[in-house]
Design a protein around this nucleic acid. Sequence first.
DNA 1: GCCAACGTTGGC
DNA 2: GCCAACGTTGGC
Length: 153
Amino acid sequence: MRYWLMKSEPDEVSFADVLEAPGKTVAWFGVRNYQARNFMRDQMQVGDGVLFYHSSCAVPGVAGVAKVAGGPYPDASQFDADSHYFDPKATREQPRWISVDVTAVAEGRYLPLTEMRGVPALEDMVLLQKGSRLSISPVTQGQWDKVLELMGV
DNA sequence: GCCAACGTTGGC
DNA sequence: GCCAACGTTGGC
């Protein structure tokens, strides 16, 4: 059982979208970074905790708590020539990118990035490191507990 | 829109 | 395998 922080642009998929999805479960697709992919492929397990983070928006921050509900499996968008995420080098025989399914667990209070930066217990979070751009990053038990406490979950 | 930081590509 | 050029991320 591990914990993760996963970034999504709310204009594309927001935590509210997950709450409104059938079964409150959505496919996490479009990861095109090897380090993030390898986390999904090699370490992520069904049941792992997920902090659903909103990036590239007016107020970046953790929008909700989720968990891994399925996968990994090949990301269908890599084969779709009409998709923004199409990868001409990926084949059905040798997929390059993968997806997992994520399901909403709790919403809680929105926790802005600016607030997280002021919390000593969170200062080592990968998210908060200078230059960190990883769309999927590991979260420690202590960081997880603190974030959920701050969100009132 | 700016730009720092990082990742990827491709010539050599 | 090096590394310059280019592309992307993402906060501000």
